[in-house]
Amino acid sequence: MTDAATALPLPAQRRGPLAAMWRRLRRNPVTLGALGVIVVLTVVAVLAPVVAPFDPEATDPAIALSAPTWQNLLGTDVYGRDQLSRLIHAARLDLIIPFASTAAALVIGALIGALSGYRGGWVDQVIMRMVEAVLAFPAFVLAMGLTAALGNSIGNIILTLAITQVPIYIRLIRGEMLRVREMEYAEAARTVGNPSWRIVVVHLLPNCIPPLIVQATLAMGFALLTMAALSFLGLGIRPPDAEWGEMTAEGASHMVTGEWWLFVFPGLVIMATVLAFNLIGDGLRDLLDPRMRGVR
């Protein structure tokens, strides 16, 4: 490399980190496929009223419990509601609730974790002991207890899912903070006269983001699964609203009478979505962390 004075002209087209990531992503068909699944689901959820063949709430006793036909592709339930339309409409809740809870947990966890890691000392000790207290409960038991105590409105379910996730982000960001706060650029930021909050928010947090993205993607799958399980147990979304877990629960009661389409399809959708989130998370980990490349 030449030094300074002779300024090299910049390449006409600069390859940003995003472009580099896209190139590597293209070589990873599994992650790309999983990403496709989530994108399609999101589009379907957004356009639900347009895409769904029927009104998801419209009952028709004449075709109750009908097996898949050309008219009702995935069959109908006890009230004669079209299952495909209900699955499509349910995608809205099933995507927005995990997303909202993960986003909330991410923001709160990042701030508390950053405080804990950057300040250290007794602040760190207190926060870490609290985190351990929350983590001592199995996540699902904690979620059950919280929804049972708070009541199962959509807001409360988001809150519950966020609370079960927050400790993970606190730990993650705290660990990252311990690493980056010792970097020389942190000291340089202090030398230049940054107040502490600016060092953390402007200089350090952006350097902690990659593992956070991975964790958040994996957590989306987990949050969806938890919500579906809560609904399955009757602690989550309540019946008139369509939700995959609640639909599986309703279908399960028909298992012995042979109406298989009522539990198989919602179950498959949950499985596919959770799998997609996990695969994206795994793929992102490989993409964002050069050390992980070629390990598996």
């Binding site: 340089a188 030398t191 952006p206 350097n207």
Partner: peptide, 21 residues
């Protein structure tokens, strides 16, 4: 913080002292 106006420092490792983002 105002002191930083009149007193500055150049660090040893030029790579580590620059924020990559």
């Amino acid at each position: 913080q105002r002191l930083r106006h009149g007193m500055q420092m150049v660090f040893q490792d030029p790579t580590a002292a620059l924020n990559p983002r």
